[in-house]
Simulated assay, not measured.
Amino acid sequence: MWMKTAGSLLLLLAMPVIAEETAKATTGGPDRAQGTLGTLLSLGAGLVAVIAVIYGCAWIIRRMNGMTGMNNNAIKVVSVMAIGARERIALIEVGGQQILLGITPSAIRTLQIFEEPIVDAGNPNSGDFARRLQSMIGKSWTAPTKE
């Protein structure tokens, strides 16, 4: 597939040179035609080299992404909720326990450790996460009303 694409691209890039070579063939000598052929071959080799480098980099990046974590199932992000512009609350599951974390740009703090799961990790979008969390903590998520 990519060989056809590279060949088509090489032919497309070579068209102006071929047209110039044909126009000058009637006036120029054989040395001029050999120089143009050498230019075409050099251009084609450079193009193939650039395409090979791009495919090589893509292969290396794919291989490195697999090495970031050996066991990706050990920690699961169950739910994340934005509290402010750069503050978030995240519920993660580690070793059968769910941990509520407060995340700011400068720190990550444990807010609560739940002994039994409060949200099913297989179905994180249950919709009652905020209600159950509010009942466990005992605080209201709404802003205080002005009196």
Rank of each mutant, 00 (worst) to 15 (best):
R109S: 15
P117W: 00
I108T: 15
G69D: 08
K146W: 11
A121I: 13
V119E: 06
S135A: 13
G56T: 09
A33T: 13
P117V: 01
L100S: 02
W141T: 07
R88F: 14
V77C: 08
A6G: 05
S79Y: 03
D120L: 01
S140I: 01
G69W: 07
I103K: 05
A14T: 03
R109F: 03
D120A: 12
L9R: 01
G138N: 10
G56L: 11
T26K: 12
S8W: 07
W59T: 02
T5S: 08
L111C: 09
R109N: 12
L100K: 03
E87F: 01
G69P: 03
G69E: 09
A33E: 02
K24G: 08
G46L: 10
G127A: 05
R32L: 01
N65G: 02
D31T: 14
I89V: 10
E21H: 05
N73F: 11
C57A: 09
W2M: 07
I83G: 05
T27L: 12
D128V: 04
I51L: 15
N73Y: 01
A85Q: 10
R88V: 09
P124L: 14
W2V: 01
E20N: 06
R88S: 10
R88W: 13
L111P: 06
A45N: 02
M81K: 12
R32Q: 07
G138V: 04
D128Y: 08
A33W: 04
A130S: 13
Q97R: 15
K76N: 08
L101R: 02
M67S: 04
I103S: 01
N65K: 10
G56S: 12
F129W: 09
A121D: 09
R131E: 10
S79V: 03
V48N: 00
Q134L: 00
A52Y: 11
N123A: 08
T26V: 09
A33I: 11
D120F: 00
M136V: 08
R131F: 08
M3N: 14
V78L: 06
C57L: 11
A25W: 14
S140Q: 15
E20H: 04
T22F: 12
Q34P: 02
I137W: 09
P105V: 02
L13S: 13
G95V: 06
G56A: 13
A58V: 13
